[in-house]
């Protein structure tokens, strides 16, 4: 067998080993219910901000404590605690991806990715509601209200 073949085999083995260890660390996207079932396991929770519950963040008391409620697409709710500063667009977001683990009743979150209404959206309704050019008259006119 040629040297190159040996090297290629070694390299392929290394790639497979690398990918296997990576697979071991893989996590999943979950709903509130399935995250509850995996209590203590690291998951990605997809939900949105529950606007009916208060968002608690008081930087004077503690700039590293944010608490809010998340509501997933199946209507399940959970309290979320994020020990970091409040992401600036939280209230504006339409979807929140939270990485963390369920600890009893509370979702302890280590990272938050927000999806905000995109400027490039193709839905005219959203586009027009975001229209800020000439004040509320325009927005009203655009929306036809």
């Amino acid at each position: 067998m040629k040297k190159m073949h040996i090297i290629l085999l070694v390299v392929i083995a290394a790639v497979i080993a690398g990918l296997l260890t990576w697979m071991k660390d893989l996590s999943t996207y979950d709903t509130v219910a399935s995250a509850r079932r995996k209590d203590g396991r690291f998951v990605h929770l997809i939900a949105r901000l529950d606007r009916s519950a208060p968002v608690v963040y008081d930087p004077i008391k503690d700039p590293n404590f944010l608490s809010f409620h998340a509501l997933d697409s199946l209507g399940q709710r959970t309290q979320v605690v994020y020990r970091n500063a409040k992401p600036v667009d939280l209230e504006r977001s339409e979807r929140v991806v939270m990485k963390g683990r369920m600890q009893g009743e509370i979702f302890e979150c280590s990272e938050i990715v927000l999806k905000c209404p995109s400027k490039y959206t193709e839905d005219p309704g959203v586009q027009m509601r975001r229209y800020e050019g000439a004040g509320s008259d325009t927005a009203a006119a655009l929306l036809g209200s």
């Binding site: 005219p124 050019g133 325009t138 006119a141 655009l142 036809g144």
Partner: peptide, 18 residues
Amino acid sequence: APIFRDPQYLYKYLVDGN
């Protein structure tokens, strides 16, 4: 969008961009 029922929409509504 209703603003385009107005022939002067450019002067009245779309006066500035996003």
